[in-house]
């Protein structure tokens, strides 16, 4: 879409307004997290006292720990299931029940969470009635719910990467004597590793952030961070939550910046190496050569 011209003024203005809209609330949240006053929106001088009281809040600390545990466990499961699902969607073509499969893969991404939460809860209740398991709601039920939600996202990311990859890479491996399982682990998996990594991070974020499904699926003693935040902000503004938000934004911001920087510099190095190879040989590059170009366009 880029046509070599700088952006027109109107589009620049659009971007400026758009980013103001996106960022003003976040920035205000951070600024007022340093407010000494207990009245969150009335400035009472600079202070870090809410950060201190946040760290001393055992309820929040244990909720954070539980949330991180659940996020890691469900992101891991989601990556395994989602990668297989993405592979099936991208490479197996049509099979009996493929339409239902593809449908079940997309629906969790958009289905209102009150519905998925309720339905999964009722599943676990029924399972308990018939099989006696799971005996109570908590870590396992939340994990299963988050895994179902996140695997859909992983599948989409992995699938779109697989569609970009030249199929003849896998055919070449088969031609050279590798069996399907080996091809998957030696060729396919390394090629989609970046997509799997971003699927993993996306899953972590979704799991850490999920409130509604979690509320349905959690039981006594399993209170995640969003549940604590929700129970607090339901009652009104809370300076500790401001501090928590500031820390979250900071951590995510640093992480995204670093990841982005690493990705960009890897891409730049690659471009430089390609240019050097062309000069060295003094021969022009083949246009649209699948093997070399495939990785440079990784998302």
């Amino acid at each position: 879409m880029y046509n070599g011209n700088p952006l027109p003024k109107t589009l620049k203005g659009v971007l400026l307004l758009g980013f103001l809209f996106l960022y003003v609330p976040i920035v205000s949240l951070i600024i007022y997290s340093f407010n000494a006053s207990k009245l969150v929106t009335v400035w009472g001088g600079f202070s870090t006292r809410w950060y201190v009281s946040l760290i001393q809040n055992d309820q929040i600390i244990s909720a954070v720990t539980l949330s991180i545990k659940i996020a890691l466990a469900s992101a891991t499961a989601a990556v395994v299931l989602g990668t297989i699902a993405g592979f099936v969607l991208a490479r197996f073509g049509r099979f009996r029940g493929s339409t239902l499969f593809a449908g079940m893969m997309t629906a969790p991404m958009v289905m209102p969470e009150v519905i998925t939460g309720l339905s999964m809860l009722l599943l676990f209740i029924s399972m308990q009635q018939f099989f006696g398991q799971p005996s109570e709601r908590g870590f396992f039920t939340i994990w299963a719910g988050h895994t179902t939600l996140c695997m859909a996202y992983v599948a989409v990311v992995v699938r779109s990467r697989l569609i970009e990859i030249d199929k003849s890479l896998e055919e070449a491996a088969m031609d050279l004597g590798a069996r399907p399982m080996k091809i998957f682990f030696l060729i396919t998996l390394p090629l989609v590793s970046q997509a799997i990594a971003s699927g993993f991070l996306l899953s972590i974020t979704l799991s850490l952030d999920d409130l509604v499904t979690t509320s349905f699926l959690s039981g006594p003693g399993a209170t995640t961070l969003p549940m604590v935040i929700f129970s607090k902000v339901r009652l009104g503004l809370n300076p500790e939550i401001n501090a928590l938000a500031a820390i979250t934004v900071l951590l995510v911001g640093i992480f995204v910046l670093v990841a982005n920087y690493l990705m960009l510099s890897a891409q730049r190095n690659r471009m430089r190496a390609m240019a050097a190879a062309m000069r060295e040989n003094d021969a022009p590059a083949p246009p649209g050569n699948g093997a070399g170009g495939a990785v440079a366009t990784a998302p």
């Binding site: 003003v24 609330p25 949240l29 952030d209 902000v233 009104g236 938000a245």
Partner: peptide
Amino acid sequence: MLVMLPFWTSFLLRVYAWMGL
């Protein structure tokens, strides 16, 4: 990345931010 960043931070906290505003 600037569009994605709010998306990566908590949904709940972004809603909360407007309560203060």
